[in-house]
């Protein structure tokens, strides 16, 4: 386990030094600041607009950083042959994979915390009163992005192309928010949509984690947020994706 943490720390440092990651964080800061304009346009609903835009943007930037890191990280180490150096030491392939993934998740959590800090300062300056479900929304974002990073890790190894891993993860991200709609279509489409019905069984159920989109739903319409279910589901889904990735990396000839 110690080796996993060493690899995770190294992966985290690598992410922080990555120019793309730094530019993404800078861009996020600038965009959060410019969201003030959107808030002004919303008049009485300024705080709601600022809250929604900020949380949505934090999620998008964390997603971009996470799937980019997942899709390029392992492949880059394969290309530069630095993976040989790591695996020639007493590090198993499973430990390597877990270390890389853990580092990626930690860097994503750091990014979310950084952006959320800036967002909170902006909101408080505009007269917002802190509400605890803000933290729940951030937790949902972290779960979603952790799942997306696991999916991207698997597809990076499966397709051995960073671009296709990015595209496939992006498509699954979209489909993961449309499961109810896909079920509706599949139920109406008959045999012609059988492949879609099969695909639904594999796509991550991202609406489950979408706490930030359900902030003001009255208690009469929803019986509390399924936090435990979401946590267990995310843990299971990530484990399965990493198991699939492990099945692939185990067969690679390094």
């Amino acid at each position: 386990m110690e080796r996993v943490f060493i690899l995770a720390a190294s992966s985290l440092r690598e992410q922080w030094r990555d120019r793309a990651w730094q530019v993404a964080m800078l861009f996020a800061g600038v965009m959060l600041y410019f969201s003030v304009l959107l808030g002004i346009l919303a008049a009485d609903q300024e705080l709601r607009a600022l809250l929604d835009f900020g949380l949505s943007f934090i999620e998008l930037m964390a997603l971009a950083a996470a799937i980019f890191g997942a899709a390029t990280g392992v492949l880059r180490e394969m290309e530069t042959k630095s993976i040989y150096l790591i695996l020639s030491r007493p590090v198993s392939r499973l430990e390597y994979l877990l270390g890389r993934y853990l580092g990626l998740v930690l860097s994503m959590l750091a990014a979310v915390s950084l952006m959320a800090g800036a967002h909170l300062i902006l909101l408080l300056l505009r007269g917002w009163s802190f509400r605890a479900d803000y933290l729940l929304a951030l937790y949902g974002i972290a779960l979603k992005v952790a799942v997306a990073a696991a999916v991207a890790t698997f597809f990076a190894l499966f397709s051995t192309s960073a671009l296709s891993a990015l595209v496939i993860t992006g498509i699954l991200w979209t489909l993961g928010h449309f499961i109810a709609e896909m079920r509706f279509l599949a139920a109406r489409g008959g045999l012609s949509l059988l492949p879609l019905a099969a695909l639904i069984q594999l796509v991550p159920h991202l609406q489950l984690f979408n706490f930030r989109d359900r902030l003001d739903i009255p208690a009469s319409a929803a019986a509390g947020e399924p936090v435990l279910l979401a946590t267990a589901y995310a843990a299971l889904y990530c484990t399965c994706c990493l198991a699939l990735a492990y099945a692939l990396i185990r067969r690679k000839d390094f």
């Binding site: 069984q201 159920h205 489950l208 359900r214 319409a221 929803a222 279910l229 299971l236 399965c240």
Partner: peptide, 26 residues
């Protein structure tokens, strides 16, 4: 390992589909 992982994903998705009720209109 891969077959087991896929089976777990299908099972977990089916469970979430049953348990989680979206508050949004159908």
């Amino acid at each position: 390992v891969a077959a087991l992982a896929l089976a777990v994903i299908v099972g977990a998705d089916a469970l979430v589909g049953r348990v989680f009720q979206s508050p949004w209109p159908r």
